[in-house]
Computed example of a mutant assay.
Amino acid sequence: MEGSSGEAAAELPVANWRRDFSRAFQYYLDRSTPHPVGRWLGTLAAAVIYSLRVYYVQGFYIVSYGLGIYVLNLLIGFLSPKEDPELEVLDGASLPTKGSDEFRPFIRRLPEFKFWYSITKAFCIAFVMTFFSVFDVPVFWPILLCYWIVLFVLTMKRQILHMIKYKYVPFSIGKQRYTGKKSSSSTGSSKD
């Protein structure tokens, strides 16, 4: 009995530290939510630091290739609608395909915040992996780069054709505003 209470007392500070760290991390994550430009600049800084590390050590090309495939997968989720018209049975919850269909806003399969968080986490994990020589597998990196470019082009071609077929655009610039119908009397010339 005494041994088990001693182990519980030893685990208590670790559990408290983990809980406090988790709360602080979530607090700062929540505070960063309304600042997308700052978040993406931070991710860009992490990507530059990772790229400099890979360039400096001249290795870890397999890690970089895996990171590229993962980011491409996230990008596809970011550009895809939540409910894919090809997979869904038409139950009224799909994207409009004709001009007369009701407008439904584009809802992403992967929201912007989760997209940002996943990419940032991926760059941080890949950066940490560059400190372990077990991940530095010797490969001819131009082949990996060419293969990734071909994969990117084919995947984006398929995604763009999907966007054209189902007539959706995953980006919106500014807030949509209703302008109303213009009356014919205001557009005609006045006779005096």
Rank of each mutant, 00 (worst) to 15 (best):
R53I: 04
P138H: 00
K191G: 01
I160F: 01
E112M: 12
Q58T: 08
A45V: 11
F140Y: 15
Y27A: 14
L161P: 02
S190I: 11
G66V: 05
T179E: 15
L161N: 09
K175D: 08
F171D: 06
S183Q: 09
R109C: 05
V63E: 13
I160R: 09
S190G: 06
E7D: 15
S133H: 11
S118D: 04
A8V: 04
L154V: 08
F60K: 00
R31T: 02
A15L: 11
A126V: 02
T179A: 12
I164E: 13
L151M: 12
M163P: 10
T155R: 05
F152N: 06
F60N: 04
M163E: 07
T120Q: 05
M1R: 14
D192L: 15
L74D: 08
P96W: 00
R31Q: 14
A45M: 01
S184I: 10
V71D: 00
G174A: 00
E102W: 00
F78T: 01
S100N: 13
I62C: 15
T187K: 13
E11W: 12
S80E: 04
A47L: 12
L110H: 03
I143E: 05
Y55A: 15
P105Q: 13
I69T: 06
T155Y: 01
G99I: 02
G92C: 00
L95P: 00
A126S: 15
A9E: 11
I119D: 00
A46S: 12
G42R: 11
D30I: 04
I125S: 00
D20M: 03
G188F: 04
F152Q: 05
T43D: 05
T43Y: 00
G42L: 14
T120I: 07
L145W: 04
K181I: 07
P111C: 05
K191R: 12
I119P: 08
L90H: 14
F103T: 09
V57Y: 07
S100H: 13
C124L: 15
D101H: 09
F135D: 05
V57F: 10
I149D: 01
C146K: 12
P85Q: 12
G6Q: 15
E11Y: 08
M1V: 09
A9H: 08
N16T: 09
L52Y: 02
P142E: 07
L29C: 06
Q26L: 13
L161E: 10
E7G: 14
Y50I: 01
L72E: 04
R19F: 08
Q176F: 00
Y70D: 11
S4E: 15
V63Q: 10
P111T: 01
L144N: 06
L12I: 01
W17V: 11
E88T: 10
G77M: 01
Y28L: 15
G77Q: 00
S118L: 02
Y178A: 06
V137H: 04
E112P: 02
E102A: 12
G66S: 14
G3N: 14
K182C: 05
L87K: 12
V57L: 11
S5V: 10
S118F: 00
V150Y: 05
F21W: 12
L12Q: 10
Y61H: 13
I173Y: 02
C146T: 08
K121E: 03
P85M: 11
